[in-house]
Design a binder for these strands. Structure first.
Lengths: 223, 223
DNA sequence: AAGGGTGTGAAGAGATTGTGAATCAGGCTT
DNA sequence: AAGCCTGATTCACAATCTCTTCACACCCTT
């Protein structure tokens, strides 16, 4: 789906300028411009997914500008995040009423910033087409397994083993391979521990997904 | 729907007195009174939609008075906006806990003042529908949590942790992730501090919202 | 029938988390 | 300055869940 494009208006403030490098180091394509004029010049070419806009701009307020952008047919789908340096910015309500999608204060924790941006950008994707029914989906973030459309929360070891098998579907993993991958070398486990975990997984997501290859190991069966 | 009625307690302060003329020039019907006694005399006759109340009053604090008003059946629906002359009034949280609907600092820009008053008066209509849709709302500006329609004011650390979890709902955050995001790297906390904060949050907003993933971390559960 | 390999039930060991309470620091009040 | 309050941190213990191990049954092949 390509990198998300962010158009950052820094208004010549250092705090906002630094965001460019930070976001650039993450998974975003960032263009930083100084003011409203430069913003408008870049809109067409850069075609951003999201605009970060300071509330305090030179000519007009970021809130007015936000409103303006949201009213244009071509641009109304672009996310707008307002930035403020004052932690107690009383404009938040006016800001959100102007159609902005989120409101962030400086200083903001990096993780929080990233989280909100990603959540915002993700919002759009989830909307149009839902993912088709794959037999097995593993969501590392949520620690969630979706098998045949049903969600399961597995305990840690079971989750890790299933993730391992899923990393190479249809490959047969020997018990030793699994042990080496899941357990630290020193706290080696003996005996049938792996087998028991496999059983637990089968009880939960169904027996059909994991096949036993006698004398060799286990295999995640996907078509 | 007719003009909104505002009852302004000016406490003989010029800054507050001047609000009467300003608001009167807008779309409001304003009655200004000096103190608590005059306020109570006018409540019944004037039947205001909104009361503006200084934090520093002569006899008792505006916060106590606010609490008092909100407890009366007949008056509990009236909006109360607290006014403070100290920009960093530490009573803000206590003030909001007393049931006040908003908190304004002097000097306040006219536009901001109007925006917030209007937003407040508008809120009543929007509230019921909005509440049922979202299980958790975090208002960074007012330091306010709304969980299942109930408002809470959490201490700083709890608020920050909940904000972090909310930045990516349903994602599992490990304790280390939480520590790195909330605490500065040098003043690292050890042990079970995060767990205790999570407990405090659960005690307040309910245990159902935050799920524990054993061996991994915590997750904010939203559908 | 024997034997290797695997599924299954159960139980103890182990680890993680919930919980009550003590301690400490900072701000505010008296 | 002393005392009180709230919030933050830490500790110890209990409750809970997970992991591991064992024993036995079962299947398949020889």
């Amino acid at each position: 789906m390509g990198k998300h494009r962010i158009l950052l208006v820094h208004n010549n403030k250092q705090e906002f300028r630094s965001l460019k490098d930070f976001l650039g180091a993450e998974d975003f394509e960032v263009v930083a411009v100084a003011d409203e004029v430069a913003l408008k010049e870049n809109m067409g070419d850069f075609n951003p997914d999201l605009i970060m806009l300071p509330v305090e701009l030179s000519a007009k307020s970021g809130i007015e500008l936000c409103e303006e952008i949201k009213q244009k047919q071509d641009y109304s789908e672009i996310f707008i995040v307002l930035l403020s340096q004052k932690k107690e910015d009383h404009n938040i309500i006016a800001g959100l009423e102007s159609g902005a999608d989120d409101f962030l204060f400086q200083p903001v924790h990096e993780r929080v910033l990233l989280g909100r941006l990603r959540a915002l950008l993700k919002r759009r994707q989830n909307k149009p087409a839902h993912q088709e029914e794959t037999a097995l989906i593993i969501d590392q973030d949520r620690y969630l397994i979706i098998a045949k459309g049903v969600e399961y929360y597995l305990p840690k070891k079971e989750f890790e083993i299933l993730s391992l098998l899923n990393s190479r579907p249809n490959k047969v993993f020997s018990r030793d391979e699994i042990k080496n991958a899941i357990w630290d070398n020193f706290e080696k486990v003996r005996g049938r521990t792996v087998d028991v975990h496999i059983r637990k997984i089968r009880e939960k997501i169904g027996a059909g997904l994991i096949t036993t290859v006698k004398g060799v190991g286990y295999r995640l069966e996907l078509n």
